[in-house]
Amino acid sequence: MDKLPKIGLPIIVILILVIVVLAKSAVTIDAGHAGVLYETLGDGVDPDKEPLGPGFHLIAPWNKVIDYETRQQQLFEEMRVLSSNGLEIQIDATAWYNPVTADIGKLHNQKGKDYLERIIQPAIRSAARSVVGRYTPEQLYSSKRDAIQEEIFQETEKIVKDQYIQLNNILIRDVTLPPTIKEAIERKLKQEQESLEYEFRLVTAQKEAEKVRIEAQGKADANRILSASLTDKILQDKGIEATLKLSESPNAKVVVVGSGDSGLPLILGNN
């Protein structure tokens, strides 16, 4: 009886040590994440070693795993930049990005987990300053927004190239101009719209007038051709034809043939 506690104590200690070792050695990586293995007794992170994927892993208890999210992430950025004429413009943008999973070891060694602040944010701000500085406030506010958005994306993509980061897209959510400039642009756009509307009505009226003129000219030309083709002989033949048709009507008439200045038949009475 006295020996059992002495034997049981070492077993309890060993079990506790095993539990501690297992707790230190067991690592679970969530879906959409990857782990970088840091070897404490080695050279740290091996950049060429494949990262740990989602699931359960066992590692040496003296090592540790640095977790990285590999899913697409988004950054909301508000920037104040200058237009081509020196006016301050506020740009609200959203960037979609994710680290390249296979290169997480290299990303960790060279940039660390705060790669967002070290690479992506400075790149977007630099690209926005460069691109917006080539445009006027009016272009930023209206016609060139899509082009500016694409240029900022391309400029940022060049900067983060070979940085083990994949930039998926950049969207311009809003462009805020100084109130006085915005009002002036809106007035100008309204005047241009009214001018375009007036020009449209003017062109429509001109086309309608041209249509009426062409129709009138066509009728005049038709009458002139018809008048030139109607000789006295044709008129007499047409008159005779009309008289014959009238004479065939059931209504009583008196037809005098050979009367009148033109020699055409005369129709007297309609009873």
Rank of each mutant, 00 (worst) to 15 (best):
T94A: 13
N98C: 05
V100I: 12
A102D: 13
A102G: 11
D103T: 01
I104P: 13
K106D: 03
H108E: 07
H108A: 07
K111Q: 10
G112T: 09
D114F: 06
L116W: 05
L116V: 10
E117R: 15
E117Q: 15
E117T: 10
R118L: 11
R118D: 00
R118K: 11
I119Q: 09
I119F: 06
I120N: 08
Q121D: 03
I124Q: 11
I124N: 02
I124Y: 07
R125C: 04
R125L: 09
R125E: 08
A128C: 02
R129D: 08
R129A: 03
V131P: 05
V131C: 03
V131Y: 01
V132N: 12
V132K: 08
V132P: 02
R134P: 01
Y135M: 05
T136Q: 01
P137W: 14
L140D: 11
L140T: 12
L140E: 03
Y141R: 10
Y141L: 06
Y141T: 07
S142P: 07
S142I: 11
S142E: 10
K144G: 15
R145I: 13
D146V: 15
D146F: 11
A147N: 06
A147V: 15
Q149M: 08
E150Y: 13
I152Y: 00
I152F: 15
I152C: 06
F153V: 02
E155R: 10
E155N: 09
E155Y: 00
E157L: 00
E157V: 02
K158T: 12
I159L: 01
I159K: 09
V160P: 06
K161S: 12
K161P: 00
K161R: 15
D162W: 00
D162I: 11
Q163I: 02
Y164Q: 12
Y164R: 04
I165P: 06
I165T: 05
I165S: 04
I165Q: 01
N168M: 00
N168C: 00
I170G: 08
I170W: 04
L171K: 11
I172C: 03
D174Q: 14
V175C: 14
V175P: 12
T176A: 08
L177T: 04
L177K: 00
P178W: 00
P179H: 06
T180M: 05
T180D: 10
I181G: 03
K182M: 09
K182N: 15
E183D: 07
A184W: 10
R187E: 13
Q191A: 12
E192G: 12
E192R: 10
Q193W: 03
E194G: 11
E194H: 04
S195Y: 08
S195F: 05
L196A: 08
L196Q: 08
E197D: 07
E197K: 12
Y198N: 13
Y198F: 14
E199N: 07
F200N: 15
L202Y: 09
V203I: 10
A205F: 13
A205Y: 04
A205H: 06
E208L: 02
E210M: 13
K211H: 14
V212I: 15
V212G: 04
I214E: 11
I214Y: 04
A216H: 07
Q217F: 03
G218H: 05
K219V: 11
A220D: 13
D221H: 01
D221R: 12
D221K: 15
D221V: 12
A222Q: 09
N223E: 03
L226A: 14
S227L: 08
S227V: 08
S227A: 13
A228N: 12
S229I: 10
